[in-house]
Design a protein around this nucleic acid. Structure first.
Lengths: 202, 202
DNA sequence: GCGAGAATAGAACGATCGTGCTTTTTTGTC
DNA sequence: GACAAAAAAGCACGATCGTTCTATTCTCGC
């Protein structure tokens, strides 16, 4: 894939754009700044997209496919039920720890930036995050149906709790710089799942 | 207080700036946009501050004092120990629900924006968040020392978990728009504290 | 209610923004 | 290796950015 030069350049631009967006913001990101980062001219770079908004949308979709590759896809090899719930959470934490994006989770960063900025960019970000949360929720439901997790608490609420720890770890790490927060989150998730499992066994 | 006209105007500017910052970003916020929002001229507004950076710093401090008034101060009337821990969490959720800032928690929004933007603005934001977290952690420690909370888990880790739920609720609310997340967070916090309390009693 | 000083407005600056148009360079095919 | 097509660059535009300087309006203590 990426046969033509144009496709390769476009891919490189989107990678740089996604990286820069996590540190400096996607709306804030200027064409000139991105051109400088990729070593291209403003107009040469711009020609790959019809407008800044299309560049932003393409960047979101590029980041989404990276997220799928790094988090969703690897977890699919884990057995349905509790192991898959754990795999999803663990891979998301790894994706954060390994700094797939230098400024942390692309969607955590951009969703804050766009939550009050209506338009197609915001819509794609929201869609992606809805997809992620409902995929995790679905995995939780399966673990409840198989009897591995207590079902007195809704899958939605369990999902809320589990994802909170990852969100918070990402946030604290990039603000305070201490990577120990990832272990905090991992322990909190493991312990939460353990409690939900134990209750079911009683 | 706020005797002179200048002080009143400055206060009004900072209120507008803090409000706009939660929706549109503090770095993104332009003097012209803020002048339009306050009905002033660009230069008339600018004269209250020596530079945009000083305006940003003043805005952060304005928001910090609002946060103290809305969250820290009311919780101080709760008895030390578990009640105060709960009061801090609950008041923070109320501060989010009642939209003291239209775009949610000022510090959640701006900390993401500035986490990779070194400088005095970032420093003040980080300081404020460190203060908040260590204040909450101190309250948790007191609850542990009084025997109300299990102390086999560090106060730091408990604090991490509790604040995660509020952060996540704020984030989800402004992205998805469903105020039910605040009740999710409240329940999660209550249940987490309950489990930590029960363990101690056993 | 007058006068000094504070508060606000007006106009302009260089820089950078997103974007269009034109030209030059590069790529891939026969 | 020539040649059409694609990719990249150059240049210029109107708008807006933060900021400065000067002029005007308002405030408040006497």
């Amino acid at each position: 894939m990426l046969k033509t030069k144009g496709e390769r350049t476009r891919h490189a631009i989107l990678t740089a754009a996604a990286n820069l967006a996590t540190e400096e913001g996607l709306e804030t990101l200027s064409i000139g700044r991105l051109a400088e980062a990729t070593g291209m001219s403003k107009s040469g770079l711009f020609a790959h997209f019809g407008s800044k908004e299309e560049l932003q949308i393409a960047t979101v979709e590029h980041a989404a496919s990276l997220f799928v590759d790094e988090v969703i896809a690897p977890a699919r090899s884990a057995p349905k039920g509790l192991p898959r719930v754990w795999a999803l959470c663990d891979h998301k934490l790894r994706y954060l720890e390994q700094q797939v994006f230098p400024g942390g989770c692309f969607f955590a960063a951009t969703s804050v930036e766009y939550s009050h900025r209506p338009g197609p960019v915001r819509d794609r970000i929201e869609d992606m995050l809805r997809s992620w949360l409902s995929y995790l929720e679905h995995a939780v439901e399966q673990a409840q149906q198989s009897g591995e997790l207590d079902d007195s608490l809704s899958a939605r609420e369990i999902t809320f709790e589990l994802d909170s720890f990852a969100l918070s770890a990402n946030w604290q790490y990039h603000l305070f710089g201490d990577p120990a927060v990832f272990e905090n989150a991992r322990r909190a998730i493991r312990e939460r799942l353990e409690i939900l499992r134990v209750v079911q066994a009683a």
